[in-house]
């Protein structure tokens, strides 16, 4: 076995990756976690996490992720900053091609997560970082006493719209349907909040402005087909996520949205390769489900390793 670099390579350093790292380090596997940018994943943009059990008052997303990283490191997890370019899964010993080298492993846990989906409308890219944003905690304070729009109707859209009301004087919450998908407690808070005005059954068709500033949105009602122009200074977009799977090529089966298909043991279409967290196709994308996936994936990887070494 000495010719194989690792028992397990974990790709991605968000909640799923760090939890996999924690469990694998405690299982004394020969493991490395690869993260291309910074640990924490999407959670670090969250101002306040109040549905992660064990923290009755809630806590800041960045802090939660630092705690997860500290916990994994405490048990000796090796974390390397490196980007996976591609995988070669043709043989039982898998090859992971990185920016500057190739490493081999018996098992892999894919925990690369997802990133905010774009609307794909005119103005979106042009004004990105100039009024178009995907991160309320990063950019909300720039819109003090301004008018902003938020697009979406799920947990993230509603929760982040509520956060924006701390700064903006008005938040239009634009949703393509006639009811929100977000969890009830968030819906209640949004509907009670005087600063949030819901615009139902509507989609944004373009983001308009001058050279450097967003000035308005063109909004179309999908039922009446009527369009209106909303004057806003910023537009926050929370309409779901795209999985981070580009490096996979066609090595692994994914669903029609690109999320990795796994079985109950978190195994993908390739034996010894597992997926956990937002990159797979769960019903519900939460920190708690990501960490649960990770524990299952490490358990499955351990079973696999036992089988091949005995």
């Amino acid at each position: 076995m000495s010719e194989v670099d690792y028992d397990l390579v974990i790709i991605g350093g968000g909640p799923a990756g760090l939890t996999a790292g924690l469990y694998a380090a405690r299982a004394r596997l020969n493991v490395v976690l690869l993260e291309k940018a910074a640990l924490g994943g999407q959670v670090i943009v969250s101002d306040w996490v109040e549905n992660y059990p064990g923290f009755p008052e809630g806590l800041n997303g960045f802090e939660l992720m630092q705690r997860m990283a500290d916990q994994a490191k405490r048990f000796g997890l090796t974390i390397e900053t490196n980007e996976v370019v591609s995988l070669d899964l043709a043989e039982p010993i898998k090859k992971i091609h990185l920016n500057d080298k190739t490493v081999t492993a018996h098992t892999i846990i894919l925990a690369t997560g997802a990133s905010p989906k774009k609307l794909g409308i005119p103005g979106e890219d042009m004004f990105s970082g100039k009024g178009v944003s995907f991160c309320a905690t990063c950019d909300g304070p720039f819109f003090k006493d301004r008018v902003v729009a938020a697009v979406g109707g799920g947990d993230t859209a509603v929760k982040e719209s509520l956060f924006l009301t701390k700064f903006a004087k008005k938040v239009y919450l634009i949703h393509r349907r006639d009811e929100l998908r977000a969890t009830k407690i968030l819906q209640e808070r949004a509907l009670e909040n005087d600063k949030i005005e819901l615009i139902w059954d509507s989609v944004v068709t373009s983001i308009n402005g001058g050279l450097t500033d967003v000035e308005s949105l063109t909004v179309k009602n999908v039922k009446t087909q009527e369009t209106q122009t909303l004057s806003v200074d910023g537009c926050f977009i929370w309409v779901g996520t795209d999985p981070t799977t580009k490096f996979l090529g066609d090595t692994i089966h994914v669903d029609k949205s690109g999320f990795i298909i796994v079985d109950l043991s978190m195994e993908t279409s390739v034996s010894g390769v597992y997926a956990a967290g937002d990159v797979r196709n769960p019903l519900c994308r939460q920190i708690v489900t990501a960490v649960g996936d990770a524990a299952t994936a490490v358990y499955s990887a351990e079973n696999y390793l036992e089988k091949i070494t005995k």
């Binding site: 940018a37 910074a38 640990l39 924490g40 670090i44 943009v45 969250s46 101002d47 800041n60 997303g61 960045f62 991160c135 905690t137 990063c138 304070p141």
Partner: peptide, 14 residues
Amino acid sequence: WAPWCGPCKAIGPI
């Protein structure tokens, strides 16, 4: 950067 921004804290060490 600003102290309230998670990604800013994350990019700091880089």
